[in-house]
């Protein structure tokens, strides 16, 4: 597995308003370096304000970091001409927590899914419709949803639609920024399962996207990811394979977040070490 998306020493700060007359700046990212490999399942865990959302925005090329390097397939993205960048951006897709605001409220589900293909000028109308149907089924929504308006769907259905749209162009990297938070357990599970399906080891690496799950739910992160990165106040404080992080955490923030995550099913007997 080779490095697909590489971030080196990213720094980004925002100025915050005055509180009690003192103007402050917030260092959302304070020197973050991260490597995402093809087909990886990575989770970034942290509390609010840890900078994980800012990191997501920088990785997806939505925001430009103040300093630091971002490399995609070994090309320095700050050196790439803007026309080429337009071709690279769709390969890194971002799904947010609140998809409702990401959809044009006047579009039907079919229009939402077909939009990226229309913009990229691929496929005939018939092909688009078939592909849209296939995508819906892939995320577990019935084909009858094609004619529905996005506002008529539940939160979980909308998130699934957002994932479907993100997968429409076959991206190499899929980043989910708290996309599962505040959803019901069974709906979270469905979406997590479909992400696991999309990144199954049986799929050839060329067609397997790397999935980055950004969340504050450690249990979900541990269930889904092979590798976990823990952030605190704009820095990565710990990283490593899931098993190690869960069983032998080193940093205090990791331990604190682990303590807040459900350790076991209710009423399961305590075990010495799991």
């Amino acid at each position: 597995m080779d490095a697909l998306l590489c971030a080196e020493n990213l720094v980004k700060q925002y100025s915050s308003g005055k509180i009690a007359g003192v103007r402050g700046t917030v260092r959302a990212l304070d020197g973050v370096s991260l490597t995402i490999e093809s087909g990886a399942r990575l989770a970034i865990v942290g509390a609010s304000g840890s900078g994980k959302s800012t990191l997501a925005l920088c990785l997806a090329c939505v925001e430009k970091p103040d300093s630091g390097l971002l490399r995609f397939e070994n090309r320095d993205l700050s050196q790439v001409p803007s026309r080429e960048l337009r071709g690279i951006r769709p390969q890194i897709q971002l799904v947010f927590q609140d998809s409702a605001s990401a959809f044009n409220p006047r579009f039907t589900v079919q229009q939402v899914l077909e939009e990226p293909w229309i913009l990229q000028k691929k496929l005939t109308a018939r092909e688009r419709r078939d592909e849209a149907e296939r995508l819906l089924l892939r995320v577990g929504l019935p084909a009858t949803f094609l004619s529905r308006m996005t506002l008529e769907m539940s939160g979980g259905q909308r998130q699934r639609l957002a994932v479907a749209r993100a997968l429409a162009l076959g991206p190499k990297v899929l980043i989910l920024d708290e996309a599962l938070s505040a959803l019901d357990y069974s709906v979270q599970a469905q979406i997590a399962n479909l992400l696991m399906d999309a990144t199954d080891a049986a799929i050839p690496i060329a067609e397997r996207p790397a999935v980055v799950l950004i969340t504050h739910d450690f249990a979900m992160a541990a269930r889904f990811a092979n590798e976990i990165v823990v952030m605190e106040r704009g820095r990565i404080v710990e990283r490593g394979p899931t098993k190690k992080i869960v069983e032998a955490p080193e940093h205090s923030q990791t331990r604190e977040l682990l303590a807040c995550a459900p350790a076991r099913a209710f009423g399961a007997p305590d075990r010495a070490a799991f």
């Binding site: 399942r41 979270q188 599970a189 997590a192 739910d217 450690f218 249990a219 979900m220 541990a222 269930r223 889904f224 990811a225 092979n226 394979p241 899931t242 098993k243 869960v246 682990l258 995550a261 459900p262 350790a263 076991r264 099913a265 399961a268 075990r271 799991f274």
Partner: peptide, 9 residues
């Protein structure tokens, strides 16, 4: 999901 059931890939 619980920590105890972490798939770990």
């Amino acid at each position: 999901p619980t920590l105890e059931r972490s798939g770990a890939g």
